[in-house]
Design a protein around this nucleic acid. Sequence first.
DNA 1: TATCCGACATTAT
DNA 2: ATAATGTCGGATA
Length: 917
Amino acid sequence: MNPVEIEEAVSQLALEPFNRGEFPFSFLRAFGNPETTIKRLRTGSTNQSDVGGVLQRSNIHIATCDAGEVETTLGLLRDSPKTAKTKAKFILATDGESFQAEDRTSGETVACDYADFPDHFGFFLPLAGITTVEQIRESSFDIRATGRLNKLYVELLKDNPDWAKAERRPDMNHFMARLIFCFFAEDTDIFVGEGLFTRTVEQMSARDSSDTHAVISEIFRSMDTKIADRQSAGIARYANQFPYVNGQLFSGSTEVPRFTKIARSYLNHIGNLNWKKINPDIFGSMIQAVADDEERGALGMHYTSVPNILKVLNPLFLDDLRGKLEEAGDNGRKLLNLRNRMARIRVFDPACGSGNFLVISYKQMREIEAEINRRRGEPDRRSDIPLTNFRGIELRDFPAEVARLALIIAEFQCDVVYRGQQEALAEFLPLNSENWITCGNALRLDWLSICPPIGTSVKLRSNDLFDTPVTQSEIDFENAGGETYICGNPPYKGSQSQDEEQKSDLERVFSNTDANWKGLDYVSGWFFKAAEFSRFSSADFAFVATNSINQGKAVSSLWPLVLGSDLEIKFAHTSFKWANLASQNAGVTVAITGIANADNKPKTLFSVSESGALEARQVPFINAYLVPGPQMYVEPRSKSLAGLTPMAFGNMPIDGGFLSFTRDEISQSDISSEIRSRYIRKIYGGAEYIRGQSRYCLWANDVEEDELSKQSLFENRLQQVRSFRNASKRDATRALADTPQKFGWIAQDGDEVVMLLPRILSERREYITAGYEPIGTLTTDQAYVLLNAPIWNFSIISSRLHWVWIDTVCGKLKTDLRYSNTLGWNTFPVYQLTENNKSDLKRCAENILIARESHFPSTVADLYDPRIMPEDLRRAHEENDEVLERIYIGRRFRNDTERLEKLFDLYTKMTSKKAAA
DNA sequence: TATCCGACATTAT
DNA sequence: ATAATGTCGGATA
């Protein structure tokens, strides 16, 4: 269940008559517990309560009681030995009048009237497995509002099918934005009279809902008409009470979708919520799913947490502002300078979604400004920070609407908090008419015209930045000295999953470069455009992006263009999971990169330590791999830089799985042992090797198909391979359809001594786990192979030095290592090895293999699990490292940082020597 | 020809 | 259910 669904279930429960016996079960059901769980608790088989209540292990201990006994009952629950023993997170007591609960981990408590307990449902969200985000628990209102608006939205689309079509959706979305504004305004005295909007609609429209749309439309028309013009415009008397709002919010068509009776009652429900409590930073990202038919199922789940956003904003510029505030102390002059500086700061998010980066920037800056004004004795002073300095571009119209609204709401709320309700109201309306959130394609728009480094006007230029470079003379310098910070979390899309339009977006962005843009992630476009912007007006920028742009091949394609010789990475957050509430898509791993003009200041590298704590390191340089060290790019090579044995990419079947067999499939078939030994081979992918599993394949690349089809085991399989290949849209695959017995890519003859290593390696293992397999063993493309290779190669692959190199320079799958022959093996810098070196390394390699052997039949996964790695194996690796590292520097390296430094250094020397030669 | 990647995908636990 | 950890083959140079 998502938070919205839980909120609805909890609210429903509170409306029903209180039933002492049923309440605990209904409560658990509302938090998404399946019927079977409830049943088991009800029959007592899993109910461990020792106070006559209901106790669900490691979750909650609930007891209902007689009127007036709540306090005492909660005490009983608190002291219950079972509560402690079963590690219950919460205790809850209620008599149907009053409601009390406690979070046993944090000690936080809830005490309220029974009828109001749904207001605290966020408190209990861990019961539904939702723990990721701390603030979500303070967002009960936002979740509730999202749920109600969603119901209204769906209901309206159902009855106004034409509004659901692509061309009218923007009207529908604009209408929703207007409604949200009205709900907020009527609860915050922006409209004079409590609940003015909801009340007026309720009173002036017919109960049968036939004219609801007309009444709302008239109210909207009124809000778009200046007071002086209302009489001539013939505004209805009831609509005349509404203020003139402007801000483009109510301009344009005032057409309103038709309401059913149900929709009219939903509207009333929504209006009766207390919109004062809205969190514009959270609400925006929750509500945006409403307008997206595909995302609606995950309503309230794709929520970006404030701490994650601050990981971008703090090091980008907020920390600096706070530092300056501290430095200024009570010095009025310095405080004034800081305030003047902040008044000119522009924050620009060219992928702003519903504006949460902008809203949070704005709120944080207002907080700093308020402190300045407090210290200067001007607490009521009007804010000098213009809302229009927070600019954004967003592709989808609804989030774009919501972003603007969220900023307006944030401004009002900040004014109320820092200056007071009266001052906030006095200057709120009419809204600024400029639309400073642009709905459009950020990769096609000219950022300089949307966020001009100078001046305040927003005018769209149709041409791209690179079609018509902006010349200095066009720039108006009236506000010289203002800083611009570009930030955001733009969309990521791997090179293979981009659609045609996205491809052409990138093509335009990179058209004037010789970049391999086809291989780049979609997000790269934002980095490149930000860098170009920065070169016009020195704006620092930082984005969240998939970590793959800082890995593997992408590094040498993208970063030389972004950084050039004038920009530098000023801070970075290495890979971490970008968590939101959607457990099912917890999967994306991101990094944050912040870029600024080169200077001599130290850079800050953030990373999450093993214990989960955030570490910040000051280093002289951060390179594009997000490791400390001078800028350098490792490019793929087709041959080893150091003369190592060639490493081949394994045999790729391209067979839909039909050339593979399990052990059982073979043993249960009727093939003769002769056919079997002639055509069936053992084959390894990474998984089979690491987990010690078996897999077999048909290996008969050059045998006639007719010959093979005589075997019933093969006949059907070959047909399936043929049709699988024919169904492909890749030419090369279809061309293979006529020879279904043949692998798509062949790396081996099949009779060499095979050393294989998996293409994907768990980040938990401390070494790269290559291994020898018997002659004739095959590998799939999930493993690399060295054929008939001298054993000292094994020593190199198995070394910590090599692990560090691969970890840094190759790609990743999530945070796991992804080995690459071209990027990792062929680029690995090694000194020329003497015969003595080679024989020393051979001995070390053999010792590793012997240590592994001594633990037969442990699998690689067992042996290299760092928690249980056998001592003798560990020692054999240590010795191997000792010998190899002496060849590099005559002693052991102190740590991985030192290893990498040496490797980078040697790589640079070896590549420049090659280039010179 | 020869890979590199996945706002992932599927299997272990 | 979450945690661990690697399929598969198309797109690309």
